[in-house]
Structure formats: C-alpha cells, structure tokens
Design a protein around this nucleic acid. Structure first.
Length: 270
DNA sequence: AGAATTACCTGAGCGC
DNA sequence: TGCGCTCAGGTAATTC
C-alpha cells in the first residue's frame, strides 16, 4: 500500500543514494507487469546518469541525461538500493546496476507497479498529463476543491481519491482526512460548501504531511518505509470498524464506496 | 463529460 | 495440512 507519504520517503532516500549515479546495466526479469515494461530499457539506460529524483503524485521520476525513468509502486512495490552482488529473489522484476557496485531493485508481489520511459517531459506523458494538483503544494486548496466539485454527484471520498482531482490521495488517507474534517464520505462532492472544502483540503494536507514527518524522523530508510507500511501513524478510522470513535466514543461503521473499504463515525461525520 | 465497472495480481486470512 | 474462497487496493481501460 505505498501511499503518497511512503513514496515521498522513498524519493528522499533514493535522491540521496542515486543522484549522480551512472547506470551500468539493466536487467528486466519480468517484462509483463500490469503495463508492459519498456523492452528497450537495457539498451536505453546504460551510460546515463541520474540527475534528480522527483515525484508527481505517487509516480517517482528519475531524471536522467536525455530522458526520464518513471516508476509507480502500485500496491505492493518496493525500491531498494542493494549491493550489486545481492542475489535476486521472488518478485524482483527489475534491476538497475550502477557503476560503483550497487543496484536499484524493484520488487512487487502483485505486479501492480508501472515502469515507463519518457524521452520528453514526463509530466506531458499520457499517464501523467491529466493528474490533478499536488496535495502539498499551493495549487491545492479549499477554493479549488469547491470549484472542481460543482456538478459532481460522486461521493466526496471517491472524488478526493480521483487522481484527476488531486494527486496521490489513497484510500487510507481519504478515510482519515474525512474523519478529521467531520464530513461523511458518502456526501455528494457538490453538496460541500466552501467552508467544508476548506476544512477538507486542510485535513488532506495535514494527514499526508504528518505521515511524511513521522517517516522523516526515522533515519534508516528501510525502517522508515516499513514503519509507514506496517505501523503507520495511529489511524483514527482506517481498519477500526466496530471500534469506538476517538472523538465521541460511538461505534465506527464500515461501508463500501466504489468497492473500497470506508470507515467513518456516523455521529461525528455528517 | 462524468460515473460506474472491470481488469490486473498474489499473499493473507478464513472456514472446513 | 491443505484446499478453496474472499479480500486487499491504485489506476488504466472500458463501458454506459
């Protein structure tokens, strides 16, 4: 479940480890992920240097001289920098070896991850071009949510999980942000007034930033990543169906919205 | 255009 | 112990 905070923690670690690294060799072990891995990667990448590691939503962008490697971790993807001699294991789909003896290894049991090569600006790539504003940047605010939500009958939870509305808000953080906002997940997006949109934009930023901050305090990247993955900041609703609400003590309920687990407090969220 | 549905995939957890 | 079932969920593609 790499959510945005986990991807951001990964980005920071990889930026430290790989900036200026010269690619020596690429091994594609699994050519067919959910979308096909570009078969020409082993010819394209060697000889290029990683100049910058950035992020757009949950996509990681590895800026190389002359192109961009773009990786999405899907549900279960990991990226690890390991000694080059580390033998590959199960679900290790892609290796990028560097001069100097390390390898960037992509592992993804469910194969929901995506690997893209873009010779031109990746933000214009079809898979990234229509992604909405970054939730932690200035373009995302209550006024934007309000304007975008006009005429939208879809449930507000599905609305904020739509990557064209805002980038990288997954199921967990959608649940948490709506709880903190006191807004019921089933409300049609267009039923929210300006004040509610302002509150919601604020709690989305807040839950994402808190999680990133928590991960950042852990110096060891692997521990940070696993903490976010398995022992994330104590969620107040996600995974707590039937437990007492931390605010009013009432029982949390679970419903399904767009086939996603949705937990909320019927008393506090209206 | 917006909304709803399907497809992709494997490990975990469950009942039997 | 192991079989078969369901669930988990990001997002692209497809359908309505």
């Amino acid at each position: 479940m790499p959510e945005l905070p986990e991807v951001e923690i990964t980005r920071r670690a990889l930026a430290e480890e790989l900036t200026e690294a010269l690619i020596a060799q690429v091994v594609v072990r699994t050519p067919k992920l959910r979308l096909p891995v570009p078969p020409e990667l082993p010819e394209l990448l060697p000889g290029r240097t990683i100049l910058r590691v950035s992020r757009r939503g949950k996509y990681l962008l590895f800026s190389c001289d002359g192109g961009w490697l773009v990786i999405h971790l899907g549900m279960t993807g990991h990226l690890r920098v390991l000694p080059a001699e580390t033998p590959p294991g199960k679900h290790d789909h892609l290796d990028i070896f560097f001069e100097g003896g390390c390898v960037l290894r992509f592992n993804d049991p469910r194969k929901f991850g995506t690997v893209i090569w873009s010779a031109t600006d990746p933000l214009a790539h079809p898979l990234l071009a229509s992604i909405g504003p970054e939730p932690l940047e200035d373009g995302f605010h209550g006024g934007y949510l309000f304007d975008t939500g006009r005429n939208r009958s879809v449930a507000v939870k599905q609305f904020i999980m739509n990557s064209m509305v805002v980038a990288g808000v997954g199921n967990i953080y959608a649940n948490e942000a709506l709880f903190r906002s006191g807004i019921r997940p089933t409300r049609p997006a267009r039923s929210l007034d300006r004040e509610e949109c302002h509150r919601l934009a604020g709690t989305i930023r807040e839950v994402l930033q808190e999680s990133i901050d928590q991960g950042s305090t852990i110096m060891d990247f692997r521990v940070a990543e696993e903490t976010l993955r398995y022992h994330p900041l104590d969620f107040r609703v996600y995974g707590r169906k039937g437990e007492p609400c931390t605010r009013c003590g009432g029982m949390l309920e679970e419903i399904r919205l767009g086939n996603r687990s949705t937990v909320y407090c019927p008393a506090c969220q209206r």
